[in-house]
């Protein structure tokens, strides 16, 4: 096995080693230069804060997760529907695609205040913002997928007098699947980013305080260990989302799609 780049164990082991190394260097540097904890807390202190403040942080994590998942779900449903509508006719796509791009290029920070005014319910407002951020990759990837059909196969379907529905279900959707899953991967990350950014703008506290709110508060109070702990949870959520999406697309496509293939040696 030596140093085979395809080795699964190595693929896990190496990043873990790097992580441990970073933590050790971080801790060593903080200890050696006596960095005050309101600038950079040591990883151990962050871990302690995570445990001490767990009930507070966990409640916020749940809020952020709720917003993220709702936004992601909405983005997938709405994005897929829009993509199917666009794929139905070149004219629909021509008329509306520029506005979909508009959605993509407008920074969510800029429109969030407006949405927060319009949508009274705080959580709903956050979900709307995050959905807007997460929507575009689903639309563009799904359209690309629905259009990227092998022309030979399309001829084959036409020669066999396939109906439009058969063509969609048996040809276009399977062809689009790898692109769609690529879109899911990007979009899930964006939903989290959207949820956090929108909450920064909204700044709602109370029972609906998410992780972004904890970061804001910790910043005001110079409670840097708490800030780090919240940050750590956001990052962890992002990584977890990514891994879930990768696993999902492996499960769905693993058998056939080339992007999912491991070269056999």
């Amino acid at each position: 096995m030596a140093l085979d780049p395809n080795n699964r164990t190595l693929a896990v082991l190496l990043p873990v080693l790097v992580g441990i190394l970073v933590l050790v260097v971080w801790h060593g540097a903080v200890w050696y230069w006596q960095v005050p904890k309101y600038l950079v807390p040591s990883p151990i202190l962050v871990a302690e804060t995570l445990v001490d403040q767990w009930s507070l942080l966990f409640a916020s994590l749940l809020v952020t997760l709720k917003v993220t998942f709702m936004a992601f779900f909405l983005a997938v449903v709405i994005g897929t529907l829009i993509a199917f509508a666009f794929a139905q006719s070149k004219f629909i796509e021509m008329s509306f695609f520029p506005y979909a791009v508009l959605l993509q290029v407008t920074p969510v920070v800029a429109i969030a205040p407006l949405i927060i005014i319009w949508v009274k319910e705080p959580t709903a407002a956050l979900v709307v913002c995050a959905t807007i951020v997460a929507l575009f990759p689903i639309i563009s990837n799904t359209i690309l997928g629905l259009r990227s059909v092998n022309p030979g196969l399309l001829n084959l379907f036409r020669m066999n007098r396939a109906t439009r529905l058969q063509e969609l279900v048996r040809l276009r959707i399977p062809s689009a699947a790898p692109y769609f899953f690529g879109g899911l991967r990007i979009s899930s990350g964006l939903a989290l980013i959207g949820a956090v950014v929108a909450e920064f703008v909204a700044g709602t506290g109370g029972t609906s305080a998410g992780l972004a709110y904890q970061i804001l508060q910790a910043g005001f109070q110079l409670d840097i260990p708490l800030l780090f702990a919240a940050l750590f949870l956001i990052t962890l959520t992002g990584v977890a989302l990514f891994l879930i999406m990768v696993t999902l697309s492996k499960l769905a496509l693993g058998d056939w799609h080339e992007s999912e293939l491991v070269p056999e040696t």
Binding site: L153, N155, L156, P174, E258
Partner: peptide
């Protein structure tokens, strides 16, 4: 029936 130059198979099937 028409047989193409490439096998033109559905990779997912």
């Amino acid at each position: 029936v028409f047989v193409f130059q490439d096998p033109t198979l559905m990779p997912w099937s």
